[in-house]
């Protein structure tokens, strides 16, 4: 077929080949997407509440999920206003939470419903024409066995880097789940033309606060690395920064609360990634989605001068 080409035909052939390749690249690199319709059926009820010792107000969110097809801006909450929300506890008895339209929650004062570590609380939400929504949670005890040590430092022309290792000593024999947060308080002194200005700011020392479970490391010590950079600035004024203290906050999570928050984290990571396994966020409520969770917080402030190397 191509044996008897004259030169003109060859030129035409080459042009045709180039056009063909361009067309190929154009089509092959195009991503075709279209929006699809799915059945518009009412969504499940979603109930969310977290308890922790000493909380001022106990709040319960009750709302209804809506179809992906619904013309509703995501993030909008459709509150359920006519539910009967009760929380029961051996100490406080069964108490009803009242709906507050200002923040679309059912709430009760923390003095009336006192949240205490080690106590079990049961939640029930009654909505007309819907099976009773129920759940129970035991509020965990706070864990005070944690701290932080300075491991290294490095000084360059305009910056000082400090490296730390935070630790959590796990209690053996019971399931524990944690999340650790840390901030440093930094004081900056700037010499302006006319005055000395002193400002303080908080800087996070962990790039990321992972959810930690002792499921396979019961009774061990968990470590988390941290770092802090303190700058010396020369423009527009000569400024000098000093770290004053480290603030650590250890959140001790009840078992399902950990599972739920981990699933939310996984969901967030997997969103938009077509190759990731879809994440189904679990629920510990019967007849509804959401969570009835609990945790306990311990905060520690460690002065910079007390940080040992």
């Amino acid at each position: 077929m191509f044996a008897n080409f004259n030169s003109m035909k060859k030129v035409s052939f080459n042009i045709a080949t180039i056009c063909f390749l361009c067309f190929y690249l154009l089509v092959a690199c195009t991503k075709f997407e279209e929006e699809i319709d799915i059945a518009d059926i009412p969504g499940p009820y979603v109930v969310s509440s977290y308890l922790y010792p000493g909380m001022d107000t106990v709040k319960v969110y009750v709302h209804q999920a809506y179809s992906l097809n619904a013309q509703i801006q995501t993030g909008l909450i459709i509150p359920v206003e006519n539910a009967e929300v009760l929380i029961a506890n051996a100490q406080s008895g069964k108490l009803r939470l009242m709906y507050n339209p200002n923040d679309s929650t059912y709430a009760i004062d923390g003095n009336a419903l006192r949240i205490t570590a080690g106590q079990q609380y049961t939640l029930s939400v009654a909505i007309a024409d819907h099976p009773l929504i129920e759940s129970a949670v035991v509020v965990p005890f706070p864990n005070e066995n944690f701290g932080i040590i300075k491991t290294d430092s490095n000084t360059s022309q305009y910056v000082k880097d400090y490296y730390f290792k935070a630790f959590i000593n796990d209690s053996a024999g019971i399931q524990n789940n944690y999340q650790l947060f840390g901030t440093a308080e930094i004081e900056t002194v700037c010499q302006t033309d006319t005055a000395v200005e002193i400002t303080t700011e908080m800087s996070m020392i962990f790039d990321y606060s992972p959810l930690i479970s002792d499921q396979t490391r019961d009774g061990q010590t968990f470590h988390q690395n941290a770092d802090l950079s303190v700058f010396d600035r020369f423009y527009p004024y000569q400024c000098h920064s000093t770290a004053l203290s480290i603030n650590l906050k250890l959140i001790h999570l009840e078992g399902f609360t950990y599972t739920y928050l981990k699933a939310l984290e996984d969901f967030d990571i997997a969103l938009g990634d077509p190759f990731a396994q879809y994440v189904i966020v679990p629920s510990n409520l019967t007849n509804a989605q959401g969570v009835f969770g609990a945790y306990a917080v311990v905060e520690k402030e460690i002065l910079w001068s007390e940080l040992s190397k």
Partner: peptide
């Protein structure tokens, strides 16, 4: 497996 519904999930 596709999601049919969406809503918000509160974090503590």
């Amino acid at each position: 497996t596709l999601p049919y519904h969406t809503s918000v999930a509160h974090k503590p």
